[in-house]
């Protein structure tokens, strides 16, 4: 007779690439989901020990506290330049930046575009939640038309405040880009897709196929002024139509890669 003890399988446990430090993020903030996915991918690919992260300025300024890989902290918007410096000196390391929309699509626009244009072999995780989180909810370059923020109190008027920056579309136009996609973090299916994209982005870097970026549509329920669950719904209803999920640039060398 077989043993009566039923075998138990661990379906999910906290990835080793995440540190023990609890995050400072608001409850339900999708930064945490993005962090977790990066850590899970680092575990799966066994790259933690040769990964070097570059933290931004914004809510994720303390990202370096939450991973067990080496990290540096960049000036606002300059993470792609800093990552470039590291990667050029240490080409066999896996170098990634983690940047929000203000950091990357506003003050750091030059650095990100040129890193992509050079085909810099770095990976960029871009958190687009359409608002400045850390400074308390000001208009971001990615804020939606009509979106009310503390610096666009009557809503973003595109006539005077411009249109949302579509970073995935923009960067995908550059020949140096090897993998540029947009994903979303609003439900389990999309989170699974996002994780796969992060994996492919790191694979792009490791294969030397050029610049890789995963734009992750994210929430900021605190500064949007809604509940955690309402924020997910808002993302689905209002961000997805402006920022369609999709593969904007995939190097042909990645097409047959199964992860």
């Amino acid at each position: 007779m077989v043993t009566t003890a039923t075998p138990v399988q661990v379906v999910y446990k906290r990835p080793a690439s995440l540190s023990d430090t609890p995050t400072h993020y608001c409850p339900g903030c999708t930064h945490g989901i993005a962090h977790r996915l990066i850590a899970e991918v680092m575990d799966e690919m066994n790259i933690r020990e040769r990964a070097i992260g570059v933290a931004p300025v914004g809510c994720s300024v303390f990202a370096y506290n939450y991973f067990t890989c080496d990290f540096v902290e960049a000036a606002h918007g300059r993470a792609p330049a800093m990552a470039t410096g590291i990667k050029r000196v240490l080409p066999d390391r896996v170098v990634f930046t983690y940047q929000g929309d203000g950091d990357m699509a506003s003050i750091g626009m030059s650095e990100i575009v040129h890193a992509a244009g050079r085909g810099e072999n770095i990976t960029v995780i871009f958190i687009n939640n359409a608002i400045y989180g850390m400074t308390g909810g000001q208009m971001a370059p990615t804020s939606l038309p009509g979106q009310k923020t503390t610096s666009s109190p009557t809503g973003r008027d595109v006539e005077s405040m411009g249109f949302p920056m579509k970073m995935a579309e923009l960067l995908s136009q550059l020949e140096g880009a090897g993998y540029v996609v947009r994903r979303s973090l609003h439900d389990p299916k999309n989170i699974r897709m996002a994780k796969k994209a992060i994996r492919l982005a790191f694979e792009t870097q490791i294969r030397g196929l050029g610049f890789s970026m995963v734009e992750l549509l994210s929430t900021c329920n605190t500064n949007w002024g809604v509940s955690v669950l309402e924020a997910m719904q808002y993302l689905k209803d209002h961000m997805l139509p402006v920022y369609p999920i999709g593969d904007y640039k995939v190097s042909p060398a990645l097409e047959n890669l199964r992860v």
Partner: peptide, 9 residues
């Protein structure tokens, strides 16, 4: 900032 990154190594 590239210099900064490289110096960190």
């Amino acid at each position: 900032n590239m210099l900064y990154g490289a110096a960190c190594t």
